[in-house]
């Protein structure tokens, strides 16, 4: 089913706090948050792969929860607080992103924004995660280059760094 075959197309106004700024958009009611970010708001850092909630490439933080933006409607973000990879990177490369680079976790890179968002959420909610907990928490984010070990290493290194900074 595609958007244009849904009739009638009703549009909804969406207002949300996006990466710290209040943003307004008017989008078709059935438009996903992923498509709204990419096509209506021009934020292309959130990547699209499966578009059915299986790969995690489009992960963002909505109201402090990790979500696949392909499974959320843009309208559902109305009134919400949304953090995307652009917001996370606003002041340059974070400690976590630097650890991704140092660990050799970045290959083709398409999954990486989603991996970074998922890893950031894990560090915020479970800063002392064990390796098994990291693997479980990250298992919804696919990487076909299979940088999995490198990503686990990056998350562990960032966790150590944040503990010593705390």
């Amino acid at each position: 089913m595609t958007e244009s075959s849904l009739h009638p197309t009703s549009e909804v106004a969406v207002a949300l706090e996006l990466n710290g700024n209040l943003v307004h958009a008017t989008v078709p009611a059935h438009r996903t948050l992923l498509d709204m970010l990419r096509d209506d708001l021009g934020l292309l850092g959130t990547k699209r792969c499966c578009a059915e909630g299986e790969c995690g490439a489009c992960s963002v933080l909505l109201d402090g929860e990790l979500v696949n933006s392909c499974l959320v409607l843009g309208a559902e973000a109305n009134g919400g607080v949304l953090l995307t990879i652009e917001g996370l990177s606003m002041d340059g490369v974070t400690d976590l992103q630097a650890e991704f680079l140092a660990a050799g976790a970045v290959q083709c890179g398409v999954c990486i924004p989603g991996q970074v968002m998922a890893a950031e959420q894990l560090l915020r909610t479970n800063p002392d995660a064990s390796r098994d907990e990291i693997r479980d928490a990250m298992s919804g984010n696919l990487c076909r280059c299979a940088s999995y070990q490198r990503i686990v290493q990056a998350i562990q290194a960032a966790a150590v760094g944040r503990r010593s900074d705390a």
């Binding site: 990879i85 990177s89 992103q97 680079l101 924004p113």
Partner: peptide, 13 residues
């Protein structure tokens, strides 16, 4: 570190 790595971790690629 890989060429283009910063763009890839920040979504700018």
């Amino acid at each position: 570190h890989r060429y283009g790595g910063v763009d890839r971790v920040t979504g700018a690629q």
